[in-house]
């Protein structure tokens, strides 16, 4: 047997299962929702068709347009808030903390919650912001408020707080990676040349960390864009997100073609953003550990 034949056989052995799995559970399901997105709703389920009615509805019915715009807006705000929190924090970690051990420990402390129950982390904010929650009772206790207020929960504010809280580690990770990559002597050199700290930051640090910012913004934006749990737990009447609409189309509303079309739109949005940011900078990849 030729060597290349032998290699090809073992390659086929290694590949067959992953390829089969990917085809059955990723490729085909995506193909199905893609197909369904052109189907037509017909009580009680739907019938095969090829029409753009679902997409047309989404882009003309103000109800759906609004949801899409709102999702985009909240995702943008969350990404901005996460950046606002993560950038100075990470800067402090990388450039101000001298001990590598302490730095790594603090970094880990930020990353670790990422893997701790997503649901619970969203849920705690319900307990904190609720009218019978920790924040209200605290404010009443110290006398700031006379009686519990319900302005903290069930609105877009509480959603932004919760989502920022959940996704901020995704912002820290790539920024940290990009900052760690900056050679220390580059900053020293800039200072030696008599460039002030602020200009050093603008001319050296910021441009070199842009890939990290882009990557982090992409993660937080896309993750927020697809979230439906925050809306369920802490969102109010004006807190419906695309994912919530998809959920209801596959649930109570029982309009699978419309839900599929929404899922395809979400998929396109997310993939477009990812490939755009990928093009902006190929470094700053996500390191899960």
């Amino acid at each position: 047997m030729k060597l290349s034949t032998r290699n090809r056989l073992s390659a086929a052995g290694i590949l067959s299962l992953p390829v089969l799995w990917t085809t059955v559970f990723l490729f085909i399901p995506y193909a199905i929702i893609f197909t369904y997105s052109f189907y037509q709703k017909q009580f009680p389920t739907f019938v095969p068709a090829f029409q753009f009615g679902n997409y047309a509805l989404i882009f003309t019915d103000p109800q759906y347009v609004q949801v899409l715009l709102r999702t985009a807006k909240i995702a943008l705000i969350v990404a901005a808030c996460a950046l606002f929190l993560a950038y100075p924090f990470t800067y402090f970690l990388v450039f101000k903390i001298k001990s590598p051990r302490v730095r790594l420990m603090l970094y880990m402390a930020v990353i670790v919650p990422l893997w701790v129950s997503y649901l619970l982390r969203a849920y705690t904010w319900k307990t904190i912001l609720g009218s019978e929650g920790v924040l209200n009772s605290f404010l009443v206790m110290i006398g700031v408020l006379d009686q519990p207020s319900d302005i903290f929960l069930y609105n877009q504010f509480s959603m932004v707080v919760t989502l920022t809280y959940i996704f901020v580690p995704f912002m820290v990770m790539p920024i940290y990676t990009s900052m760690e990559k900056i050679p220390r002597n580059l900053i020293e050199a800039s200072k030696d040349l008599g460039v002030g700290p602020f200009r050093t930051f603008l001319k050296v640090t910021l441009p070199l960390t842009t890939p990290g910012i882009v990557a982090g913004a992409t993660f937080t934006y896309c993750l927020t864009f697809g979230d439906f749990i925050a809306s369920f737990l802490v969102g109010g009447p004006d807190g419906l997100m695309v994912a919530n609409v998809i959920t209801s189309q596959f649930g109570a509303a029982l309009n699978w073609p419309l839900g599929s079309a929404l899922a395809i739109i979400m998929l396109i949005v997310v993939l477009t953003i990812i490939s755009l940011s990928d093009r902006v900078e190929r470094s700053g990849r996500l390191d899960l550990a």
């Binding site: 085909i28 929702i33 994912a243 899922a263």
Partner: peptide
């Protein structure tokens, strides 16, 4: 293979539900 890490879980959930 790497798509599910980038895509919202809702898409994975919905598409597999369909399957």
């Amino acid at each position: 293979v790497l798509l599910p890490i980038a895509l919202p879980g809702v898409i994975t959930g919905v598409s597999m539900l369909n399957l």
